[in-house]
Write a protein that binds this DNA or RNA. Sequence first.
DNA 1: CAGAATATTATGTGCAGACATAATAATTGT
DNA 2: ACAATTATTATGTCTGCACATAATATTCTG
Lengths: 231, 231
Amino acid sequence: MTTAFRNWQAVQQEVLRRIHAREWAPGDLIPNEADLASEFGCARATVNRALRAVAEAGLLDRKRKAGTRVALQPVARATLSIAVIRQEVEEKGARYGYALLERSMTRPPAPVRAALNTADATLLHIRALHFADGAPYALEDRWINPQGAPGVLDQPFETTSANEWLLEHTPYTRGDIALSAQSATVAEARDLGCDAGAALFALTRNTWNGPVAVTRVRLLFAPGHSMQADL
Amino acid sequence: MTTAFRNWQAVQQEVLRRIHAREWAPGDLIPNEADLASEFGCARATVNRALRAVAEAGLLDRKRKAGTRVALQPVARATLSIAVIRQEVEEKGARYGYALLERSMTRPPAPVRAALNTADATLLHIRALHFADGAPYALEDRWINPQGAPGVLDQPFETTSANEWLLEHTPYTRGDIALSAQSATVAEARDLGCDAGAALFALTRNTWNGPVAVTRVRLLFAPGHSMQADL
DNA sequence: CAGAATATTATGTGCAGACATAATAATTGT
DNA sequence: ACAATTATTATGTCTGCACATAATATTCTG
């Protein structure tokens, strides 16, 4: 016995080792917390913390009374962090640039109205470009609900992106993100400086503050862009 | 006083409320755990649990001695769950289908060798199609290192996808995922039943078991595919 | 024997107290 | 004034105990 696993990370490591080594095979019921605690020479709370962490990673399924078992099909959960674009660009060691293309109050097209559930309201429409080292990096097409973002109408967004302003000044409670690929239209190709029809990575995000829609944004990245995540 | 926040979820709710209501504005230092505990009428451990959860969600930054402050730019962390393709298809209510296109032992092209760090070794190359309701859903192009996946050479992968077999039989310790967009080549278009040059959503994943590479897979999804995630 | 009531059990969570650790602030020595 | 040492402080975590809760197993009852 290598003796005592005294902290929860050590216990977690040992649990992971047993899962990877197939000592606990997928589907297996593992010993209960109390038993593991006495085996590891620590308190049950410590085992609980460790198992909870592993379960959050998707490798264990826990149910009261039923016990803890190794997940049959560990649903890999890639956590991709979506930062402010400026930050993203600067972290790649590039110089960030920003240019406003359009700013208007308009009644949005049907898909946007449907996604934000804003009926006939006119929304603030922002189109802007983000640059990395002078080259187009991403095209931002955003609709903002003034109801959900007080003070937004006073912002020109000529030098600061809506991206950053909203994040700092507008609270939100929930949102959803969709990632997809689409072909560049002629207009998009012109803005991004690529060929029409080029495959572009698209990120569409809706943000809500309770029941009220805040914003919907579609980011079209220049060709070659990829998002990375670890497992 | 709406009286005691007795469990950590209630404390978490209250903390989130204060952040959203800007009672604690971005950048602000919030009271320390002990103070909050006495304010909320619970133990410090309970406040700790709540704050830790909020910090994990990216809304708080915590540092020893420095204290806890509201994140200036809450890095949105979208957690996308990457399940087995069969599962993904069936969850959409579609009938799943699978067809093996190619199975061979080959020395992989340079990019794959570089990504897996396998030098001159020959790897098992699998190309397969996944169907949803009879229509091509995703094209799988996979390289498997027999060193990292014992028993894989005995598998025909004619009716079961490598995707599922590996997940169930091969342990791994880490992996990385890249999401991108790319144009369909003529061959890919033929397999997926779309036009050449169509924008396709691509997912490339490398998997490792400790220091040894297990597999690298590129999934090309049929046009229109999107990945969803919540914030 | 079917179905309802009850007991059992594993996880979920709370508490108070203790010590560990990292980061900052204050003090000291040169 | 500056650098090195020491004190302080907020978070991080462990412990042992208690009770809550959900899910299963068992017993009781018509």
